[in-house]
Structure formats: C-alpha cells, structure tokens
C-alpha cells in the first residue's frame, strides 16, 4: 500500500471538497472491503483517502412517501436485518445474503457494493480496467475468461461485481449523488457505465462525487427475487445472477423487470424476456422460456459458454422464487 493522507470529514460538503478533480488523487473509504485490497495491490494509489462513514447524510434506512431510502454507508448486515427491507424486498435480501461471509456483510456498504471495481484478474494484476497488455491487446478474450462477460461491450470483458445493482435496477431504484455543485438523482442503471479507456471507471460518478443514498420505490404488490448461481457455499463470487420484479394483475404478470448480474460489464436488462412475460400467467415452462430469451444476443468468450446456460437457469429460478415470495 502506498502512503496516503487520511481524511475524516465532518460534513458531506467537506467530504466532497476533500476529493480530487481527477481519478487517482483521492479515494472514498466506506467499508473498505474493496479499496484496501486495491491499495495493497497498488491498483489504486491515492494520495488521500476520505472516510465517509461518519457522515450523517449517508446513514440509516428510512421509509419515505414513495418507498425506502437507504444511506450509502448502511452495511449489508444492516440491510439483511432490516424489517423494512425484509418485508418488501426479498430480492435485495437474497442478493445481500449471497455474500456468504458475515465479515464482509458487517463491513461492506451498499454504496461500496455499487461503486466497487471489477474483479477481472487481469485488472487486479495491473493490466488496467479493461485488462490490456502493454501492446494494447485485450487479454480476457485471448486468455482465461471463465468468469468474464457473456455480454461484453466494446473492449469491456469484465463483469460488474455488484450484488445490489441487478435487484435495484429491477425494482426501479435511483441513487442520489452529491458533488461540488449540489446533488443529483439518477436511475441505478445509469450509474453503471462501460469504460472505454483502460483507466476508465465502471460507474458514472465524477472523481469528486459521492454516492449518498439509494431510493427504492415501494414494492408492495411487486413479486421480487434474486437467484445467484454460485460454485461454493462459502464466500465466493456468483457465476451468474438474475433479479426479477413482477408487477402482478391477479395471476398474470402485468409487467416484468429482469436484470442479469455477473454476465456483463454492467448489469444487463433482459428486455426481451421482460416483454415475453407481460400479460401472461407465469408457469415453470414460461419461466424457462424467459431464461432462454434472456440470453439472446449473448456473445460468450472462449471459456465461458457455460455462463449462458447458468444465466438461463438463474432467470428461470429467480422467476419461480418470485412466485413463491410474498407479494
């Protein structure tokens, strides 16, 4: 780890002011589960680390007129324990419990989950966000890509590591972002971006912006679930996930949101599968069909064709789980 200056701002405004105007100058410290490792591996070498855990604007889970607000530094454990979330958002609880380590759940924050860097092993070994060799060759497609994207975009072959991205997008959530000129709100799907340079980032934050809270609309009457295919029961990254949110009209699906995780550089919205379900009664066969449609357009790499199948299954099982779940 390179030496850095540690900042403990007292207010959000102060925190924003302590950040740098370009990437690499300062890093935001919340749970630290990603940042500390990035710094140990010299992938991030910030001159300053700004601790945002003490900022009151970023705390707590509260009910709002339209749904729920989760502060960015709320931990995974707090999410899993929250009656407000448990009662209405099983898809979020399932995603959070998919992180099988209590230690990570106690440390990791919801904001950190959304803003974490990708886990591509080329990136983690210093070959840049996109994993390019000195000669500019993209390493994932010619190398080992079993955990990489089946929906790559441009030169981005890594997968978004976020657990919460897919369920939050499926639920129509927004994030609030504070910057030097005030705050803004964007849908969660707009938070995730595909970097086009090897130094690019996976989220649409400016270097001096802080994700402060997540705003989730009420899910009353929305059946929702997340299914993760994981190799190990103990702590492990999922191989493919699907989060679904179904607005029901009696026993038929009025509208569906289906979002895939760990298959693309951003969470992938399975619009074709969503359309397929609209106006139909959900049966196991239809769920399986939705799974098939969800992977239309997948472009697997040399070693990850299997993830296409896993994605089909994740969609099918998430849908079946949603039908079991409390509406």
């Amino acid at each position: 780890m390179q030496a850095f200056e540690y900042a403990n701002p007292a207010t959000l405004q102060e925190a924003v002011a302590m950040l740098g105007s370009s990437w690499g100058e300062a890093d935001i410290l919340a749970g630290g589960t990603d940042l500390i490792s990035l710094m140990k591996d010299y992938i991030h070498t910030p001159k300053r680390v700004v601790n945002i855990k003490g900022l009151k604007e970023l705390q707590g889970i509260t009910k709002t007129a339209t749904g729920l607000r989760i502060g960015a530094v709320v931990t995974f454990d707090e999410v899993a324990e929250s009656p407000l979330i448990r009662s209405e958002y099983p898809s979020i609880v399932q995603a959070v419990l998919g992180v099988a380590s209590p230690q990570i759940r106690n440390m990791g924050t919801v904001g950190g989950d959304l803003c974490q860097r990708n886990r591509c092993w080329y990136f983690r070994q210093g070959f840049g966000t996109l994993g390019k060799d000195k000669d500019g060759t993209s390493l994932p497609p010619i190398g080992e890509n079993r955990y990489h994207a089946i929906f790559p975009k441009g030169d981005a072959y890594f997968v978004s590591a976020s657990s919460l991205g897919p369920p939050l997008i499926a639920l129509g959530a927004k994030v609030k972002i504070a910057g030097p000129s005030g705050s803004r709100e964007i849908p969660v799907e707009e938070l995730f971006v595909v970097p086009t340079s090897n130094k690019g980032r996976e989220v649409s934050l400016a270097p001096n912006e802080i994700l402060t809270e997540i705003l989730i609309p009420s899910a009353r009457g929305v059946r929702n679930a997340t299914y993760e295919v994981r190799h190990k029961q103990a702590l492990d990254w999922p191989l493919a996930t699907a989060s679904v949110a179904l607005r029901m009209k009696g026993s038929t699906v009025a509208s569906a949101k289906i979002v895939l995780g760990h298959v693309g550089p951003t969470p992938v919205i399975a619009t074709e599968a969503e359309a397929l379900l609209a106006g139909k009664a959900l049966t196991p066969d239809l769920a399986a069909e939705a799974g098939k449609v969800a992977v239309n357009g997948a472009k697997p790499l040399s070693g990850n064709e299997y993830k296409v199948q896993l994605t089909r299954v994740a969609v099918k099982r998430a849908l079946m789980e949603a039908m079991k779940a409390r509406a």
Binding site: S22, V193, V194, P195, T196, S197, G200, R201, S204, L205
Partner: peptide, 9 residues
C-alpha cells in the same frame, strides 16, 4: 474513460 464520465468531469 467513458464518455459519460468525461462529461461529468
């Protein structure tokens, strides 16, 4: 760097 991000900066 993403276009989006450049704009933010």
């Amino acid at each position: 760097m993403s276009k989006h991000h450049d704009e933010r900066e």
